[in-house]
Amino acid sequence: MFKIKKVLNSSVVLAEDQNQQEMVLFGRGIGYGQKPGQMIEEKKADQVFMSVDNMRAKEFLQLLDSMPQEFIDLTQHIVQYAEKRLNSTLNSGVYFTLMDHLNFAVERHKKNINITNRVYWEIKNYYTEEFEVGNYALELVNDTLGIQLPKEEAANIAFHLINALGEKSDSKDGMKYAKMIGSIVNLVRYTLNMKMDQENIHYSRF
Rank of each mutant, 00 (worst) to 15 (best):
I157Q: 00
D53A: 09
E83I: 13
S10P: 05
N163V: 02
R205M: 10
S171R: 13
D143K: 02
V185Q: 00
H202L: 15
K3P: 08
Q47K: 07
Q34G: 06
D17N: 08
P36S: 04
N103C: 15
V24T: 11
E70K: 05
L86E: 08
I72G: 04
D197T: 02
D65L: 07
E83L: 08
K172F: 08
K195D: 12
D173T: 12
R28T: 03
T89H: 12
L140H: 07
N186D: 05
V119W: 11
Y190T: 14
N91Y: 13
Q69P: 05
M39R: 09
L25Y: 11
I4K: 07
A158Y: 04
M196A: 08
K6C: 05
N125I: 07
H77W: 09
T97P: 04
S11D: 14
N193A: 14
D143H: 12
V188T: 06
I30Q: 06
G31A: 11
N114A: 12
K43N: 13
S171H: 13
P150V: 01
N91F: 12
L192H: 06
M194L: 09
T144I: 00
I147H: 00
N114Y: 11
V188S: 02
V13Y: 14
Y126T: 06
I201T: 11
E107N: 02
N9G: 02
F206V: 11
K110T: 06
M39P: 01
K124R: 11
A154N: 01
A155R: 00
N200T: 02
K58W: 04
I40D: 01
Q76Y: 09
S11I: 10
K44D: 08
L25R: 04
F104M: 03
A178S: 09
K151S: 09
E16D: 04
E132S: 07
V13N: 15
D65N: 14
E22D: 13
F206Y: 03
F26M: 12
I78T: 01
T89N: 12
L61F: 07
